[in-house]
């Protein structure tokens, strides 16, 4: 038996699963952490990104540029959605869920009418490498690299820039932030646009691993949703990292011990266990403990 190849394979699967969760959820959790809404149409923004990447790639655009265009298109769509709809539902979790869910149906059905039900494809770039008897796709590791880069990038944006400082202020006390000259509306629009753009980039990148169709987003929304809920809104970036690390671990183990399907189902079970112990998510739990220890 090829011992080394098997070990590498486990890690490869783990990183692949984590990358999937992070990329699908990163834009969503950014918006949730910042504004307390869950955008159920996030998967459809990914779908838009996937189409833009595929169409521009097929028209001769190089892959990185096609992905950047996917991000721009989804970001622009996100800004329009925020301005017209989401703005009215900040910090109303249930209403925002219903409204954006409706929007997701409109978007996917709209694309169905516009482009038809047939799927599009984009080849997976970068080939593969092998360890022993096992063969691994290089592109999957690129996905993981991008996922980590997104987490680090967002963390730095919110930690070290004036925009990040204004955003934190707007999150903690929007009225006071306004009284210090922060245009909170613009902060929200920017954040929503950024989260949407990240979704578009993720969609563009997943277009190279999955068939693109009007219902593309539906393969990502449930897991993204679970990751966000497990992560919690108190510290979106940390929450996402913890949630993805945990869920991907569970999935990798169970799908190897049993099968892919059980691996998928076990994510729900793992989420259930966490929510029993930490009803508002991992990062909420950690933040609250940190606050308590600070007060002592």
């Amino acid at each position: 038996m090829d011992f080394v190849g098997q070990i590498v394979s486990y890690f490869y699967q783990y990183f692949d699963n984590a990358a999937f969760l992070i990329l699908a959820a990163v834009g969503l959790i950014l918006i949730y952490g910042m504004m307390g809404v869950i955008n159920m149409a996030h998967g459809e923004l990914m779908m838009i990104g996937a189409y833009v990447a595929t169409l521009t790639y097929n028209a001769g655009t190089p892959v990185p540029l096609a992905i950047a265009l996917a991000g721009c298109a989804a970001g622009a769509a996100g800004i329009i959605i925020e301005r017209l709809i989401v703005r009215h539902f900040y910090n109303q979790l249930l209403s925002s869920l219903v409204v954006t869910w409706g929007l997701s149906l409109i978007l996917s059905q709209g694309v169905l009418v516009l482009l038809g039900p047939s799927t599009m494809n984009m080849p997976t770039p970068l080939g593969s490498f092998s360890v022993g008897d096992f063969s691994f796709g290089v592109y999957r590791m690129v996905l993981f690299g991008v996922a980590v880069a997104m987490i680090v990038g967002i963390w730095m944006l919110f930690r070290y820039t004036a925009f990040g400082n204004r955003a934190h202020a707007a999150m903690e006390n929007p009225r006071m932030a306004e009284a210090l000259g922060v245009n909170t509306r613009r902060v929200y629009t920017t954040t929503f646009g950024l989260g949407s753009a990240l979704g578009g980039i993720a969609g563009g990148m997943f277009a190279m691993t999955a068939a693109v169709s009007p219902f593309f987003g539906q393969s990502y929304t449930p897991l993204a949703f679970i990751t966000v809920v497990i992560g919690g809104g108190a510290n979106a970036v940390l929450g996402l990292a913890y949630a993805a690390a945990y869920l991907a671990g569970v999935q990798t183990i169970t799908s190897n011990v049993f099968n892919q399907y059980i691996g998928y189902v076990s994510i729900m079970a793992a989420a259930f266990v966490v929510l029993l112990a930490m009803p508002s998510g991992i990062s909420d739990f950690i933040e609250r403990r940190r606050m308590r220890s600070m007060q002592r």
Partner: peptide, 19 residues
Amino acid sequence: RGIFSRLTVGANLALGTGV
């Protein structure tokens, strides 16, 4: 007082630039 309690003192001060 309207202090942003989760931000550092320095970050609170930086926000004053908006006045």
